[in-house]
Structure formats: C-alpha cells, structure tokens
Design a protein around this nucleic acid. Structure first.
Lengths: 151, 151
DNA sequence: CCAATATGTATCATTGTTTGTTACATGAAA
DNA sequence: TTTCATGTAACAAACAATGATACATATTGG
C-alpha cells in the first residue's frame, strides 16, 4: 500500500527552516523533497493557517518558522497536516448487522485503538526542538560535511 | 488513504466457516463480503497454502476450516494475508544523506516501531476461538434473530 | 510605474494500487 | 458426461496521491 509522506515531508522542511537564517522559497524546499513547488505550498498551507509558519510574497520572500520549537510537538504537526489515518488497514462497513462482523471488528478496533493511542503519545513527547537538537548531534558527528544538509 | 480490508475480510469469512457445518463456497462467502468470488479465492489462497483452510472442488465442495481455533491468533492470520504494512504513513527515501531527514526519520521510526509492536502484541493475544466466543455472546444477546448471521 | 520574484489556488494530467471482472482450465461428484 | 466448484491469468475500472500548468495576487526595488 502506498504511504502518505506528508508528515515526514513537513517535518523535513520545518527543520530546514529552523536552521536557516533567511526565508526559504517553495522552490528551494521542493528541491529538498525532490518534488514540486506547488506541492510544497499546498502542504504548508495548513501550517500557515495554524500559525506555525509564515509565507511572504515577493523578492526575498519565502517561508519562515513562526512558532516556538520547544512548544510544538510532532503530534501538533501531525494534526496540522490533517491527522491522516494512521493505519493502512481497516474494514469496510460491509454489513454491520452481521454479528460475525461485529465480533471481528470489535477485536480489531480494540487493538488498533491502543496502538494509535501509543503512537500519538510518542509523537506528543517529541518537540521540534528535540528534532533540531538531534540534528545538531548528527552534525557534530560529521563535521567534515561542507553543508549542514547535503542536497 | 484507502484502507486494506483483507485482514478484516478474512477473519469475517473464517468465523462464518467456524459456525457452518458444511463447506461454504466462494460464491456464498463473497456474498458476506459483498464482493466477487474470485477475490475470495484469491484472498484465501494464502491461508490454504499455510494449512488454515481447505478448499474442495466439485459439487458439495467449498471452503472449510482446517486448524484449531484455540491455537490460531489474529497475528497468525495477519501474517497469512501477507503482513500488510501497518501504517498509512511513511517516508520516501528522499535523501538519506541529508542529516535533517535522518533526524526526522529517526524520531518517526521510533514512534512507529513502538506502536506496531504493541499492535502485534494485541493481535497475538486474541485467538479465533476468542472471536468465536465473542460472537456467541453477541448471539445470546440477540436470540430473536432468525439467522445467526444476517446476510 | 514597472519588471522581477514569490506565493495562492484552481484545474487537469499522471501514476500507482486495489479491487472487480471475464475467461478458461482443472478436478470431483452423481 | 454433465454439473458444480476451485485455480489462475489477464484485463478493466475505480480511486487516491502526486505532479504539472496556468494564471491571479502581492511585494520589492529601481
């Protein structure tokens, strides 16, 4: 099944923005993700509406962070990109009257709910600042690299 | 994102088989799932190869269970249908050299791994016999229903 | 004011996966 | 030998995610 990479992509560009001292254009960001500038704008539109990032038009414009990295968790970003369904599995509403199906779905739903709850807890426990610090650690470990982010 | 319902579907038909005293044809089973007989055969083919079910050709033929319900867990069935990817989210291999991406993916992977491990644990803790018992409880609670499974 | 740059967004094309369908071969039973 | 059933390949349809194009809007700086 095809995987939705919105969350990963958004975090990727947010971190790049965190380590940039000037606005980054959709064009530049799309280069990092090897995608299209329009896709970037589309994806970041939600974050802009929620006030996590700011977009400025015109020359010298682009995207900048507009939040406290230490206050925003991965869960916030997950919500911001639309809280996409966590699981690739589910069940159609085949026939909810069927007692057999009710039994099956009940058992599966229980397991899936618990797993999703754990995932959300874990995402809530990591801030963008944590990610940024993690990046810095990796950078210290590879100081020879010319650019902090090889693209 | 579209959800894969193979696991749910397979469990559904397995339980029907568990409560039937004769082989059920792909045609009948496809009726329960509101799908196509060929899809059923395709999906159950894996379970047949693993010995969980048996398929008999010819008049009076069809599908029957060929395992101990108390010994087979939902996790076994999950594996039997191909252990489809659990999550609808992921990350492309955009640019693994990028330290930013490494930091992001590291954090996400950690959270996803834990959630998946919990899901597998939960699935391992439920047997087909448990599901069958659950069905029976539901049936006791609705004794007026003419057929044990309304289809 | 105007040219250049950048986002905002609607629309359409492309791609890939899943599911459904058709067709036909194989095998078993009466 | 007819009928009923599975086994499977091949193809069609449906759908969602992604990419691309076009153009409007806003801002900067000469």
């Amino acid at each position: 099944m095809k995987k939705d990479s919105k969350l990963s992509s958004v975090l990727h560009v947010l971190l790049h923005m965190a380590h940039s001292d000037r606005p980054l254009t959709s064009d530049e960001l799309s280069g990092y993700l090897q995608t299209n500038p329009v896709v970037v704008r589309r994806t970041l539109a939600g974050l802009r509406e929620l006030g996590y990032v700011e977009a400025v038009k015109g020359p010298g414009g682009g995207w900048t962070l507009d939040c406290d990295l230490a206050q925003v968790t991965l869960r916030d970003i997950y919500d911001a990109v639309g809280s996409p369904g966590v699981f690739a599995m589910g069940h159609r509403e085949e026939n909810p009257q069927c007692l057999v199906e009710q039994a099956v779905n009940g058992a599966l739903d229980q397991a899936f709910r618990e797993a999703e709850a754990l995932l959300i807890r874990r995402l809530s426990g990591v801030t963008l600042a944590d990610l940024s610090a993690d990046f810095n650690r990796r950078y210290q470990a590879h100081p020879r690299r010319k650019a902090p982010h090889a693209h």
